[in-house]
Nucleic acid binder design. Structure first.
Lengths: 106, 106
DNA sequence: CCAGAATATTTGCTATTGCGCATATGCGTA
DNA sequence: TACGCATATGCGCAATAGCAAATATTCTGG
């Protein structure tokens, strides 16, 4: 396993493994709207634990998918505005594959 | 972690974790052309081991991404022709994100 | 039936991942 | 400074994934 141009292939792999976790994917989906969301909000909406949520956000962050900003006692996370198009395409496709939140039909 | 409509979300997660492995992703990329490829070929091209390659192909298969067919002493794998569009979109995006094999420019 | 090629699978092992719990840290206010 | 809220992190644990080596299985040709 040394032939492919790992240099970059591994970035893709990293992105994929980051996405391949329910809580993380759900969080990213929420952040994908571009807005800011604090850990506490995500925690509530995803019925997760403080430590778990924080940890997962850390993973998303170190994968470069999201950005954080300290605002008083909160930390606001949001979708990294500088993602490479290829990465955006992947996340878009993944989120599109998720079951929608079923708005009521007309 | 019980609120989201897991039923289907987990399928996406499964697909993602399947893709999140270098050897598997590289193999799928090869199979993505729609043609048939035996394990021995993949093994060679990816510089992998017999057991490793076989196992990874098994994972791709049980994830529903590929199909296999026995042909004499070989087993020919190929991209599952009946993938749901959403899955195809994901794999397309992922493969597009991989470093290309650099054809010589004009 | 036998030998050999191509695949699959079992086994034992190591590394990684996700979790909960407890604790630490940053920040605002009294 | 002390307290409380929001978030991060250290730690030990259980489950999972991936690997190599050995063995089993399937099929072909003789």
């Amino acid at each position: 396993m040394r032939i492919f141009s790992y240099t970059n292939m591994m970035n893709v792999i990293a992105t994929l493994s980051t996405l391949a976790e329910p809580t993380r994917l759900a969080a990213l989906r929420i952040l994908w709207d571009g807005g800011e969301h604090c850990v506490c909000e995500l925690m509530e909406r995803l019925e997760s634990t403080q430590s778990r949520m924080s940890r997962h956000m850390g993973v998303l962050k170190s994968a470069g998918l999201v950005t954080d900003r300290r605002d008083a006692q909160w930390v606001r996370y949001r979708r990294n505005p500088n993602l490479p198009p290829a990465t955006i395409a992947i996340v878009d496709a993944v989120i599109a594959a998720l079951p929608g939140q079923k708005k009521k039909a007309a």
